[in-house]
Write a protein that binds this DNA or RNA. Structure first.
Length: 292
DNA sequence: AAATGGTGCAACCGCGCGCAG
DNA sequence: TCTGCGCGCGGTTGCACCATT
């Protein structure tokens, strides 16, 4: 039960308090339990939401008999217990989408998450901080610098597209419509018509590594998100598939790329770091090709 | 085998917005 | 208009796990 690995951690926060109780927040009230959620608490919350739906989190927490703040319940539900939440490795397609959308919107994690089915803003934020910022740090440049943004935009993202295309060529095509019919539930609050027990608990909190049909189908779907995935476009004025226009019709367009403008920067990056597992040997060769 | 350091990620925090009264 | 509450967002924290020494 991989997803429960952290259930008992963070006990240091148990019972701690803070005087800044403002705006009606109950977060710092000593009467509320803090720290890791137990299986029993999870089951209580899931069953209550299954019966009564979500929202009005403070009163929900009270009526469910949970000694938790509404905030804590909401967070637990949205980031962990929702049936459609998807955890596990961020796929290449999702990485590409995150980079694209972040280049457009910045740290608007929830907005970005709306376009990655099953992914939470917290998970995307964690991905950005642990992966992308790490690489910026290793490349000795600020994550918000033009240098690093250019690296993402002109080298990392096209490279991801190449990898996606390479992998999609070797995989069977997926019936997107079928996936769409069966899966698309992002942005909707799903209240399954079932109650949760300890026995079916694990199957309701899916992980990406599990071979359940939902995880597989979502993965299949995301594999095609740059070609024909009918994502909810929300407030996009133009195509979500190619927000910045680099990937029109699924094809790379380097017309706007003047790699030589960044030649000095990129050369310095190459000198600075060749050891990272993201910028592997293949990537280094690719970068050098672009610079020559 | 033990110690140490790095990483991933769940959970917490403060802040601000929107809405109802 | 003002006030309080509910909620969501982005940033931060710190433990468990894992790899390395």
């Amino acid at each position: 039960m991989d997803h429960l690995q952290h259930v008992n951690f963070d006990l240091r926060r148990e019972g701690s308090s803070n005087d800044n109780n403002k705006k009606g927040d109950e977060d710092n009230n000593m009467d509320f339990k803090r720290g890791s959620w137990t299986i029993e608490e999870d089951l209580t919350l899931m069953n209550h939401i299954a019966l009564h739906g979500e929202g009005r989190w403070n009163s929900l927490a009270r009526s469910a008999g949970l000694k938790r703040t509404g905030k804590s319940c909401r967070l637990r539900w949205l980031n962990y217990l929702r049936p459609d939440v998807r955890r596990g490795n961020i796929t290449l397609e999702e990485q590409l989408l995150i980079l694209e959308l972040h280049s457009r919107w910045g740290n608007r994690w929830s907005k970005i998450a709306q376009h990655l089915p099953g992914r939470t803003d917290n998970e995307i934020k964690n991905y950005w901080r642990t992966r992308v910022q790490k690489h910026a740090k290793q490349l000795k440049c600020d994550v918000n610098s033009k240098q690093f943004k250019d690296t993402l935009r002109y080298l990392w993202m096209p490279r991801l597209v190449e990898r996606i295309q390479a992998s999609s060529n070797s995989n069977n095509q997926v019936n997107i419509q079928q996936s769409n019919d069966n899966i698309i539930s992002n942005n909707n609050n799903i209240v399954p018509n079932m109650s949760f027990t300890q026995e079916n608990y694990s199957s309701t909190t899916t992980t990406a590594s599990s071979e359940n049909s939902i995880g597989t189908q979502i993965s299949d779907m995301s594999a095609n998100c740059y070609t024909n995935y009918p994502i909810n476009q929300g407030d996009y004025g133009e195509s979500l598939i190619s927000p910045t226009g680099y990937f029109q019709n699924g094809a790379l367009d380097f017309r706007t790329v003047d790699i030589h403008d960044n030649q000095q920067n990129m050369s310095q990056l190459l000198l600075d770091d060749v050891s990272d597992n993201f910028w592997n040997i293949e990537d280094m060769l690719f970068l050098q090709q672009q610079l020559n």
